[in-house]
């Protein structure tokens, strides 16, 4: 059998593929990640939010972020769609979804954007130094002392949340909502945004309770809400949950798979490296190939 370059690559690929797919059940069972059972969460009721930006202001204060260019009571800021960044961990965006009020005016819906604090966070999975970790209280916590600035988390995040201090050449940090980790670690502590919200559009509590509460709200006020809790199942569930009067797709919410993001990547990675079988088989393959080539060459030399 003549082994050219194409055939070699094909064989290798097949071997790797077989390795990856060969025993999926066993390998995924090896990824025994369980989200924290007693985690906190926040339920955002978009039908209540009035777009006052007080959450942005509170976030700025409790996290000691720099003064914004335009003050927080300037609501014209809402004319543009914004993203959270290194200087604002949360932003409010305004959407006109087509809903009209009693006066036939376009009624706005305000959407708070911040880190969703995934139950099974892709950023933490991607982080090669363990600077990002999911804490038992629900926060996806960033440890600046461990971070090496590779920014894999930014690539990994399905919600595109982590931001980087590009303006700081010496000690840049990855910046994102902290879920007020220090505050909620204390008894009775609440995240800054939830605490300040004048209408309790954000409810802070145990995630499991919040899902129950969201369902109850839908039962109590039929027709008010879309029958869907965004964040309950998305990417394996998030600590921040949303319920809304309008369809989520109209307000910039991404359609994401229910499977946690790390599921696929970690399955492949962990699959490849379990029991060192992939490197071993690669070397075995290479050894075998070498043996075949050597034998052929020896035979050729004999002929001459």
């Amino acid at each position: 059998m003549e082994l050219n370059r194409r055939r070699f690559l094909g064989l290798t690929g097949a071997a790797l593929g077989a390795g990856a797919l060969g025993k999926p059940s066993r390998v995924s069972a090896a990824r025994a990640y369980q989200p924290p059972p007693d985690a906190y969460g926040c339920l955002v009721d978009l039908s209540v939010c009035v777009g006052c930006r007080k959450c942005e202001q509170a976030c700025n204060q409790v996290n000691h972020l720099p003064e914004p260019e335009r003050p927080f009571d300037d609501l014209t800021v809402l004319d543009d769609k914004r993203r959270p960044g290194p200087e604002a961990f949360t932003v409010i965006n305004r959407y006109y979804t087509g809903r009209r009020d009693e006066r036939n005016q376009m009624a706005p819906t305000f959407v708070k954007v911040q880190c969703m604090h995934c139950q099974d966070p892709a950023c933490a999975s991607a982080c090669i130094v363990g600077a990002l970790t999911k804490k038992p209280n629900g926060a996806v916590h960033y440890d600046v002392d461990k971070c090496i600035g590779c920014r894999y988390c930014m690539v990994a995040c399905p919600f595109q949340i982590p931001a980087y201090e590009y303006h700081d050449p010496l000690t840049p940090r990855v910046r994102k909502c902290t879920f007020c980790f220090e505050r909620i670690s204390k008894q009775g502590g609440k995240p800054g945004c939830a605490q300040v919200c004048p209408v309790e559009a954000i409810t802070f509590g145990k995630r499991s309770e919040l899902i129950k509460l969201a369902r109850q709200k839908m039962v109590d006020d039929p027709g008010r809400y879309q029958p869907y809790i965004y964040g309950e199942k998305e990417v394996g569930g998030t600590s921040w949950l949303y319920i809304s009067r309008e369809p989520f797709a109209k307000m910039g919410f991404l359609k994401l798979p229910n499977q946690p993001m790390p599921h696929l990547t970690e399955t492949i990675q962990h699959g490849i490296f379990s029991y060192m079988w992939a490197p071993l088989s690669l070397f075995a393959l290479l050894g075998g190939a070498m043996a075949v080539f050597n034998r052929k060459r020896d035979q050729g030399e004999d002929k001459s």
Binding site: V48, A194, E200, T203, F204, G205, E209, L210, L213
Partner: peptide, 19 residues
């Protein structure tokens, strides 16, 4: 007080007044 774990869904005073 808001977010009383004993009474989920009960609004705090501030939110109740505002709403």
């Amino acid at each position: 007080n808001s977010f009383n774990p004993e009474l989920p869904g009960r609004l705090g005073l501030k939110a109740a007044l505002h709403r």
